[in-house]
């Protein structure tokens, strides 16, 4: 439970939502990128619960205690509730989200991470490994665990979207364009992926699997994986 590290009081709530775990669950992160987004989600979720209770409570009070709000001048209501409160909260939230977003970008690194190419066609993904000489294209994505990997996402026909929810957000595969997403699996294991952008009759079955290997086994696994 990584998120408990940052927001301890929420551990209880998270536990009560243990139903959230699942092979495609964004709330069951297995890498730093998905983890950061899950944290952002929980912050926004609890803030939203409070705001909903506030507005719903005001609505109830207006009816149950007529005249309770008269002490606050009409325009005060508008300025405080409509401008000041959302203004402050949104400034904080936008700043926080941009900070997180900036960290997730595939910045140039002194030690460039390995690159894998994910090519979407109707209706399957083809993964190839330009960094590894002699590696063949595979239907399962192989990555080393514990370190970032850059996935170069392209399309051979229509728009697809590469999404491994437990590792990171999604990025679209757009014909003629070349998008890069940085993912990382903290531990070796198998992670499920889907095509998130509707791409025709086979959209539903355009799923794939990510196998994260211990770094020392990675090369060998890729070389052996050819179908």
């Amino acid at each position: 439970m990584k998120r408990a590290r940052i927001l301890p009081p929420l551990a209880l709530a998270s536990a009560s939502l243990s139903a959230c775990a699942g092979p495609l669950s964004t709330l069951d992160p297995a890498g730093p990128s998905a983890d950061a987004v899950a944290n952002l989600w929980w912050v926004m979720f609890w803030a939203s619960v409070l705001l909903f209770l506030l507005v719903g409570g005001l609505w109830a009070l207006v009816w149950l205690r007529p005249g309770f709000g008269r002490s606050l001048a009409p325009m005060r209501w508008v300025v405080l509730g409509g401008l000041v409160m959302p203004g402050v909260l949104l400034t904080l939230l936008v700043g926080f989200a941009l900070y997180i977003g900036e960290r997730l970008l595939p910045h140039a690194l002194a030690d460039p991470p390995p690159r894998v190419s994910a090519h979407g066609i109707m209706w399957q993904w083809q993964f190839s490994y330009p960094d590894i000489a002699g590696a063949a294209t595979t239907p399962t994505l192989h990555i080393p665990a514990g370190a970032p990997v850059d996935i170069v996402v392209t399309s051979g026909d229509v728009v697809h979207s590469f999404w491994v929810p437990r590792l990171a957000g999604k990025i679209d595969a757009i014909p003629g364009h070349r998008n890069v997403i940085r993912i990382q699996a903290d531990r070796p294991g198998t992670y499920e992926g889907v095509c998130a952008e509707f791409c025709g009759d086979g959209h539903t079955t355009m799923r794939f699997r990510v196998e994260a290997h211990a770094p020392q086994d990675y090369r060998q696994a890729v070389l052996e994986a050819a179908p």
Binding site: G87, L90, T91, V94, L98, G101, L105, H107, V180
Partner: peptide
């Protein structure tokens, strides 16, 4: 004016082309 501050100021600090 407030929208301009809110829209443009936070954005100008982040990565330009990635």
């Amino acid at each position: 004016l407030a929208a301009s501050l809110g829209t443009f100021v936070p954005g100008l600090a982040v990565s330009l082309c990635i």
